[in-house]
Nucleic acid binder design. Sequence first.
DNA 1: TCGGTATCGAGTATCGATGTCACCTCACCG
DNA 2: CGGTGAGGTGACATCGATACTCGATACCGA
Lengths: 142, 142
Amino acid sequence: MTRPQTQHGPATRVMRATRQRAAVSALLDRLEDFRSAQDIHEELRRVGDGIGLTTVYRTLQSLADAGEVDVLRTGSGEAVYRRCASAEHHHHLVCRRCGATVEIEGPAVETWAQRIAEQHGFSDLSHTAEIFGLCRECSATA
Amino acid sequence: MTRPQTQHGPATRVMRATRQRAAVSALLDRLEDFRSAQDIHEELRRVGDGIGLTTVYRTLQSLADAGEVDVLRTGSGEAVYRRCASAEHHHHLVCRRCGATVEIEGPAVETWAQRIAEQHGFSDLSHTAEIFGLCRECSATA
DNA sequence: TCGGTATCGAGTATCGATGTCACCTCACCG
DNA sequence: CGGTGAGGTGACATCGATACTCGATACCGA
Ligand SMILES: [Mn+2]
Ligand SMILES: [Mn+2]
Ligand SMILES: [Zn+2]
Ligand SMILES: [Zn+2]
């Protein structure tokens, strides 16, 4: 289901390719864990890719809207971003110490959510399900 | 498992009964949905219970720490609070339009989280699992 | 190449949340 | 009962994350 580019009409979004967007995208490819907008901004500047913080926020948001990155909230409410290997719907097992992340499936969760919501007459569903803990390394280091 | 009050020792928290704490607690008893600290502050002032915003934040925090209220984060990262009927661990089905909330059990989720985390060697686990949607009324009104 | 426009980004505003600290008030005891 | 002091309060300052403004910049299609 691709969006027609050559069609007329008032709402023909184009999404230009810019150096900044490329830099954010490339960095996300390289990173394993969830990172905040600020982290990403710092890292890009550190390696010499000049970019504004505003642009990092905007870019991450549009990537998230496009479903290209996953977003979740840390305990303190900060948004963290990660390019996931799977484009499919999935959940995460996250180390609350080092941020190490495993993408996981939750068929049991999917059916559970569906069934419960149905029982109560809810529609237009979405859900969150994330597991937090200490990874093997961090358990040891503790 | 009650906390000894008359024991010596350096960490004998007392938690005094104050007008402000009573007011917050009473309002929470009256409310059905998840509400933000700011909401609760406004409502209390509106009905004439003078109280500082700082105090509302502090009180909600301590109630949450004590497990007396549930906290969850809105999509925008704002913390919202609710006194739940069940003191046991449970999850929520929330109307993203009107905030109507149903407390739900998730035995399937519990075992899923446990099993997945074990498989990956994670310890010290916690998890979140909330379902969002439109309640029957809001579906109709849509 | 060139112009229109999407995008950029430094500065500034907003917003939820927490820290500060002088003042207050329970809870307790004589 | 009144005094005492540790816990509590709240106006205000501060913070970190994110949104907004708007002139400057750089894509990209013609
Ligand atoms: Mn799912
Ligand atoms: Mn659970
Ligand atoms: Zn770890
Ligand atoms: Zn509703």
